[in-house]
């Protein structure tokens, strides 16, 4: 994974940023805002994922085309009839609407892809550990157990293969399912017996006795507070400036973009701008040596 400047910030900053961009992209269906969001999300995905990011972005294009083309088949409002399908009009207003909704969906997927990379499970727990202690402890234990149980399942399957009970290449479904159930059964026994040791150890160390403290690796610095304030100003600008309205069917009516669009673009560009700033600083400090 490439080093990303925004990912180094406090989880709260990351969380509020994604709350903002995903929230805005769900609510605003103005084409200009949507295009800005698409560019912003695509740039950030490329920053986070590097070269494989192109595959992610291009993979969403067919989805976009299919979803946009599908909508006018069910929404017949609008004046500009392009052609008729099954005796029903296929209007370009409905097509534009379909493209907008498909675009919103695709942008949302891109943002969530970035979210998964930036707001990792440890950051999520850092944010919500105090608010929901029991649930986040449960989440931590599950997140630890998933890789551990996966490894154990492979070991069990390997051991079964050694005694000639493995699943051959061309095995029938029945054989595969029955072998899977045997592995699952052995895995369950192992995991449940292990859980008793864990629970006893937890109790011995005083779980549930007093209020638990939690280990925090992240600190809210001045930079984070500045960023949060900046995001709040920009978000207020987007909401306050208006001009985000757009209606498609039955009549196409799109507001003129105002300076709110500029605020929105600035909001979207926070992570790439931070990355750029770090790169420039790095260059300068190298050239000084």
């Amino acid at each position: 994974m490439q080093r990303d400047a925004f990912s180094q910030c406090h989880p709260l900053t990351n969380f509020l940023y994604f709350l903002g961009v995903i929230g805005f992209s769900v609510v605003i269906q103005h084409p200009a805002y949507l295009s800005a969001g698409a560019v912003g999300a695509a740039v950030y995905s490329l920053l986070l994922y590097g070269r494989p990011g192109w595959g992610r972005i291009l993979g969403l294009v067919p989805l976009f085309v299919v979803l946009s083309g599908l909508n006018p088949l069910f929404n017949h409002y609008g004046q500009g009839v392009l052609f008729t399908v099954f005796g029903k009009p296929y209007t370009w207003e409905a097509l534009a609407y379909g493209m907008t909704i498909a675009g919103m969906f695709v942008v949302m997927l891109l943002w969530f892809g970035c979210y998964s990379r930036v707001l990792t499970s440890d950051k999520f727990i850092c944010l919500f550990g105090r608010l929901i202690p029991a649930l986040s402890l449960l989440l931590v234990m599950i997140l630890r157990l998933i890789p551990s149980l996966t490894r154990k399942a492979r070991q069990i399957a390997g051991a079964r293969m050694c005694i000639g009970k493995g699943v051959a290449e061309g095995a029938s479904w029945k054989e595969k399912i029955s072998a899977g159930m045997h592995v699952l059964s052995a895995l369950t026994d192992w995991a449940l017996e292990g859980s008793i040791v864990t629970a006893d150890s937890m109790r011995a160390r005083g779980y549930g006795g007093i209020r638990r403290t939690s280990f925090q690796i992240y600190r809210l610095t001045g930079r984070d507070i500045g960023l949060i304030a900046w995001m709040a100003v920009l978000a207020a600008g987007v909401i306050g400036a208006g001009g985000t309205g757009a209606a498609f069917t039955p009549v196409l009516r799109i507001d003129r973009p105002t300076w709110g669009l500029a605020a929105y673009c600035l909001f979207l560009l926070i992570p790439p701008a931070m990355q750029l700033k770090e790169a420039v600083q790095w260059r300068i400090s190298i050239s000084r040596i």
Partner: peptide, 22 residues
């Protein structure tokens, strides 16, 4: 503790179960 751990194990088992069946 016991309830929490049992829940975590069953939950992780549910998630992992798809690995077991090929």
């Amino acid at each position: 503790a016991r309830e929490l751990v049992t829940l975590a194990v069953l939950c992780a088992l549910a998630v992992v179960s798809r690995v077991a069946v090929l």
